[in-house]
């Protein structure tokens, strides 16, 4: 299962929650599959989806799901210790771990070689770290939401991309629409 198939499968779960989506293809895919005001698309700034999601979860009560990638988490590895030490039980970090930098042409990441992000998260002090297959993402995500506990989900899946257009929405429109959904 590749990332776009996973996003399509879990769109019904994501739809009810605030979603901070990683730069590049993940945001483009989510935008194409189910664009709505509760989605915050990152158009730049690789690596910060998990940090933005944590800040958002700490600031208000609604459930926040950050959709991140293995390459992006590697670029901001400190985030896992910040998350572990600032628990927000309305926060779920979902790392789609396809072992490659999808948006730049599927070059391998170190997560696709020796590095195990789920073990890094545990070593950082994250208390609920779950690894699942792409096929089980929806069920795992729903269980994490229902648990009311901050959870890190590492989804192991295949690398691969579909062709799709870039997001042309104005960033301020994305942000303003999202903030209204947060406050709603």
């Amino acid at each position: 299962m590749i990332r776009s198939e996973i996003l399509r499968a879990i769109a019904p779960v994501l739809r009810d929650h605030l979603v901070v989506c990683n730069i590049g293809l993940p945001s483009q895919e989510l935008h194409m599959i189910d664009d709505n005001a509760k989605n915050f698309y990152m158009l730049g700034t690789m690596g910060l989806a998990s940090s933005i999601g944590l800040g958002l979860a700490l600031a208000q009560d609604k459930t926040v799901i950050s959709i991140d990638g293995d390459g992006s988490v590697l670029t901001n590895l400190g985030t896992l210790s910040t998350i572990a030490n600032n628990v927000a039980d309305n926060y779920i970090l979902m790392i789609i771990d396809n072992g490659s930098y999808g948006s730049t042409g599927d070059q391998p990441t170190y997560a696709g070689r020796k590095t195990r992000l789920e073990k890094v998260a545990e070593a950082c002090g994250c208390e609920n770290v779950i690894t699942c297959r792409g096929e089980d993402t929806g069920e795992t995500l729903q269980a994490a939401i229902d648990s009311g506990k901050m959870t890190i989900i590492v989804v192991k899946c295949d690398s691969g991309n579909i062709k799709l257009p870039v997001i042309t929405m104005d960033p301020v429109v994305i942000r303003d629409r999202f903030m209204k959904a947060v406050a709603d």
Binding site: L48, S51, L54, G55, L56, A57, A59, T82
Partner: peptide, 20 residues
């Protein structure tokens, strides 16, 4: 919320601001 690096900190701030 102490951060490990300042760009991470700015991400936290962006999220907090969108959260009110």
């Amino acid at each position: 919320v102490p951060s490990n690096k300042e760009d991470e900190g700015m991400g936290l701030c962006a999220g907090a601001w969108m959260g009110g």
